[in-house]
Design a binder for these strands. Structure first.
Lengths: 199, 199
DNA sequence: CACAATACTGAACATTCATTCAGTATTATA
DNA sequence: TATAATACTGAATGAATGTTCAGTATTGTG
C-alpha cells in the first residue's frame, strides 16, 4: 500500500473516530464541523476532502456500524440452535451493543429530521430496509422450521424493528441490567404475548 | 371578555395551531419561527409577545396536547368493554391520528437535542413518564380483571410504549390502510405473540 | 529532475435562525 | 378627548455553521 493511500486511510479513520465520539456525545446537529476540526487537529477542508458532507460523514458512520454488526452476527448466529434462541441472542446483543454505542441517540435525531436531500433519504431508506430484511429472513426461518406461526412476515419484521427501535430509546435511561431485562422481556412478549387465554 | 383579551386568545390559538402543525410535520429544530410567521401571517415579534421563546411555545403545545388527550380518552375509553378492546382502540386512534402522535416525535427530538435548562429537562421527563404511567394503568386494569397475565407491569408499559413509538417511525412511510393494519398487527403480537407452541 | 496527482490548509462565503427593540396601531380607561 | 395599556410590526442583530476554493505541501511517476 502506498504512503498516500495509507495516509488517506489513517486520516479518514481519525476523522471518523472523532466524529463518532462527538456525535455520540452531543448529538448530530449540536456537533459542528468546527468541533471535529478541534478534535482531530485537521482542517475543515480536509474533512470535506475525505467526506462529501456532514450528512455523508454521519451516514458513513452508520453504515460502518452496520457492516460491523453484520460481521459480528455472522459469527454469533452459529452459537444458537433455534430461531427463538437467535431472537433472544439478537436482543441481548443489541441491548449490550447499544450501551457502548450511544451513537444511536444521534442516529435517531438524524433519522427524525425530515428535510433531507433525496439521495440522503434514499440512503436512509436502504439502511432501514436492511434492518427489516434482516428481521424478515430471521422470522421466515422460524416459520419454515415450525417454530413460529406462519403469518404476515413482512408485517412482523416491521413490528420487531419497531419494538427494538423504541426500546433503544428507553434503554438510554437504563442501567445495564435493566436494559438486558427489558430486551429479554420484549422478546418474551414478542414470542408469547401478554393475553391470558392463548389461542 | 374584552376585545383585547379576545384578540389575544385568538392570536395565541392561531400561533399555537400553526406551530403544532409545523412541528408535527417537520420536527422541532427544522421548524423555524419564520415558518410560523409565514403560516400565521403575523410577525415574529408577535409570536414572542405571546410566547416566551421557541422552547416555551413547544412546551406549551405538548402540555396542551396532554390535556386534550386525557380528555379525549376519558370519553373514548367508555366505548370499550374490555382492556383488550381498549388496547386495540388506542392503537387505532394512534394509527389514524395525524397530529398528536407525530408531535411525540418532535418531543423526542426536542428532548434528545443539546442541553436544555434543568427545568425544561424536568418538564419533558414528567411528560414522558406520563405516557408510561398511562400504559401501566391500562395494563394493570387488564391484569386485575383477568384479561392479561399477571407480570412485570412497569416493564410491559415500556414495551408497549416502545412498540407504539417505533411503529410511528415506520408509519411515516405508510399509507393509511397499511398503517392501520400495522398497528392492529402490533396489538395482535403484543397480546398473543408469534411463537407456535404457546405456554 | 520534472510534472502530475494527491493530501491538505484555513480564511472567506453564504445562509439560517432565534431573539430583540424601537416604533406604530388599536383598544381600554378616566 | 387625552392618556395609559395592550397588541403588533418587521427590520436589524448577532451568533452559529456547513461548505467552498484558491493556494500550498507532500508524494508518486516516468
Amino acid at each position: 500500500m502506498n504512503k498516500k493511500q495509507q495516509q488517506t486511510e489513517q486520516t479518514k479513520k481519525k476523522i471518523a473516530d472523532a466524529a463518532r465520539s462527538m456525535f455520540a456525545q452531543k448529538g448530530y446537529k449540536a456537533t459542528s464541523i468546527e468541533d471535529i476540526v478541534k478534535a482531530t487537529g485537521c482542517s475543515a477542508g480536509n474533512i470535506y476532502y475525505h467526506f462529501k458532507s456532514k450528512e455523508g460523514l454521519f451516514l458513513y458512520l452508520i453504515e460502518d456500524w452496520n457492516r460491523e454488526w453484520d460481521q459480528t452476527w455472522l459469527v454469533k448466529e452459529k452459537q444458537y440452535a433455534t430461531t427463538i434462541d437467535k431472537l433472544y441472542g439478537m436482543a441481548e446483543y443489541l441491548a449490550l451493543d447499544q450501551l457502548s454505542h450511544p451513537l444511536t441517540k444521534a442516529a435517531n435525531e438524524f433519522f427524525n429530521n425530515s428535510e433531507k436531500a433525496p439521495d440522503v433519504e434514499e440512503r436512509i431508506h436502504v439502511i432501514v430496509q436492511g434492518y427489516i430484511d434482516f428481521n424478515r429472513q430471521l422470522l421466515q426461518q422460524g416459520i419454515d422450521n415450525q417454530e413460529l406461526e406462519a403469518a404476515n412476515v413482512s408485517g412482523l419484521a416491521i413490528i420487531l424493528d419497531s419494538l427494538l427501535f423504541g426500546l433503544n430509546q428507553h434503554s438510554r435511561r437504563m442501567e445495564r441490567e435493566e436494559t438486558l431485562a427489558a430486551y429479554r422481556l420484549a422478546m418474551d412478549v414478542f414470542l408469547h404475548g401478554i393475553a391470558k387465554s392463548t389461542r
